[in-house]
Design a protein around this nucleic acid. Sequence first.
DNA 1: TATGTTCCACAACAACTGTTGTGGAATAGG
DNA 2: CCTATTCCACAACAGTTGTTGTGGAACATA
Lengths: 197, 197
Amino acid sequence: MPRTNPRRRDALADAAVELTAVAGVGGVTHRAVDRAAHVPIGTTANYFPSRDELLSAAAHRVAEVHLAESMTATAAAAANQAGDAAGQLTDLLAASLVTAATTHRTRYLAIYELQLEAQRRPALAGALAKLSEIAEAQTQAMHLALRDAGAPPGAVPLLITLYGGALFMLVTGPGPIDAAVVRRLVEAMVTGARSTG
Amino acid sequence: MPRTNPRRRDALADAAVELTAVAGVGGVTHRAVDRAAHVPIGTTANYFPSRDELLSAAAHRVAEVHLAESMTATAAAAANQAGDAAGQLTDLLAASLVTAATTHRTRYLAIYELQLEAQRRPALAGALAKLSEIAEAQTQAMHLALRDAGAPPGAVPLLITLYGGALFMLVTGPGPIDAAVVRRLVEAMVTGARSTG
DNA sequence: TATGTTCCACAACAACTGTTGTGGAATAGG
DNA sequence: CCTATTCCACAACAGTTGTTGTGGAACATA
C-alpha cells in the first residue's frame, strides 16, 4: 500500500490545493501536481491512486489548514472582550471578511472550485463537510455576542449564510476589496440578523 | 467561415450550458456537446473552433436566456404596485430567491462554474460581464422601492451583493430549499440594507 | 551480513482532448 | 439543367489524461 510518508503527503496535498485555485479543478491532475510540487512524475499517483482520492485529499488539507489558522484567530479575538457586543461582532466580522477576501483569496477560490465539483462527487462532498462543521464551531463567540445584543435564536446560521455568500461575491467579483464597502456590508448583515424574529 | 445556422448555434450553446451544470466546466468539450445535443461529432467544433469560443458562447447564451426570462418576470412584478414599499420588495426578493434556487438551480450552477473559470479566461470574463449589467438594470424597481422606504443611496448595490451571495449559498448548499428560511434571510437583507448609512 | 518490508520512479495502456484540414452534400442563382 | 457557394460530417494529428503494473532502491530487523 502506498501513501505513507506524511510530510510528502501534506506537501502534495498543498500543491493540489494551490493548483485548484490557479488552474481550476480541471487542472488538478496527478502529473500536474507532480510538476507543481517538484517531485518525480508518478509520485502523486502513488500517494493518491485515483482522482477522487486526490481531490478529496485537497479538500481535507484545506480544511486542516483552515482549522489551524482559525483557532489562533479565535484566540486572538477572544482576548479583547469588553462592552458593546454587536459593535465588537461587526468589527470582528469586517476584519475577518477583508483578510479572507485578500490574504486567503486563493484558498477560498480553491474551496469554491471543490464545492462545485462536490456536486457530482460524493467523496468530495464528505471531505468538504468538515469545513462547514469548522465554520459552525467557530461561531461560539458569535453566539454569545448576538445573545448579549438581544438577537433571536436562529440569527447565527442566518449570519453565517450571509457572511459566506458575501465572501463568495467578494472573492469572485471583479474589483479590488474596498474596506469601507466591506464594513457597510457587515453592518447590514449584523443589523439584519439581529432584527430577525 | 463556419458558425452560420443561428438555430443550431443556440441549440449547441444550450447543450453546452446544461453540460456545464451537470459535468462542470471540465466536462464541456466539443465532442461532449455534440453527444449531448445529438448532433454528429465535429459539429460543435465547426461552430466554435476553439474552447474559448465554446465556453464564451455558453456564457453569452446563459445571459441571453436569463435576460429574456427576467424581462417577463419584471413586467409581472411591476403589475402590482401598492402600499408598503419595503414589504413588497421583501416579497419580491423572497419569491425570486426561491425560484432561482430551485427552478433555475442548474442554470446558476453553470453560471458559478463559468464565473470561476473566468478567473483565468479573460474572454469568458467579458462574456459574463453582461450578466452583471443585466442584474443591475434589473433593479430599477428595487431602486424605487428602497427610495420610497427611505433607504440611503448605496443600499441597492449592497442588497445585490447580499442577494447574489445568498443565492450561491442556497444553490451550492447541502439541504433542500426551505421557503421560511429564505424568507427570514431576505427580511434580514432588506432590513440591513435599509439601515445602512 | 542476510532478509523482509516499505517506498518510489518509471513504463505502458487505452481513452480522450483541442485543433486543423478536406471532401462531399445541400442549396441558391442563373 | 448547370454552376458556385455555403454548410457540415469525418479523419487525422500530436498531446495529455487516469490507472495499473513492475523493478529496484532504501530501510529496518534480526
